[in-house]
Design a protein around this nucleic acid. Sequence first.
DNA 1: TATCAGGCCCTAG
DNA 2: CTAGGGCCTGAT
Length: 270
Amino acid sequence: MISVSTEYMDIGRIAESGQCFRMERAADERSYEIVAGSRMVRATPADGEYLLDCDENTFNAFWKDYFDLGTDYSAFTDRIDRNDSYLTAAVKCGGGIRILRQDPWEMIVSFLISQQNNIKRIRRCISNISEKYGRKMARSDGSVYYAFPEPEPLAVLDEDALMECNLGYRSKYVVRAARDVCEGRFAPDSLTEMSCEQAREALLRLYGVGEKVADCICLFGLHHLSAFPVDTHIKQALAREYPDGFPFERYKGFEGVIQQYIFNYELVRK
DNA sequence: TATCAGGCCCTAG
DNA sequence: CTAGGGCCTGAT
């Protein structure tokens, strides 16, 4: 068991933030089951902290980095303009937010599915494709979960085959991306060598990837903190709170972190 | 019943 | 290059 303070990392808040679609409430309605690639960890809220049911080696080798626990977010939040009452309130309301370091391929598929879609259904779609095309995994306690699907089993499908998994018109986006990977036209691993701008350009060439989706992949799959995805909520918030323009310059290099605080704040206020 | 949810593609002008 | 219709599906 590993414990992490809620103030430092708030799993519940991150689960709502829409950056990860495989953080689901377990059957006990209290703990979260978090799946990343083919790994799974259970996080149980305790007194001001979360208990992760992994051993120290696994934590240090994987989850610590996954949750970006080596980064001090107060270095970001300390740079908020104190005269900016909106951002100040947003940061106050977003304690424990972190930008996860997730897998690029997983983020490509997840955010292709996310477009014109709601979080609840996105979760179900991803759960569906994982159960059907992901590897079945068994934990030592006997419980079962499904790894995120690799490109190979998806690449051989008919373009509309994933409609069966409820992806709707996004089915062909996912199948084509899988084919691009398997047939050598696109290498998700190569993205990690690129700058944010280079990766964005490469991603935009994928069918079904537009600017918003590309930015999400850069931020959550490549940890380019300068990526600033603008969805309808962010657009509305910026128009309402910053009619003369948002001060991007001030937050250069960690715009994406600020985006998460704004997004969370908007969600909480609804 | 209509609208829209964390968009993108494609076509017209 | 910009505007606008179409797109799967489920929730409200």
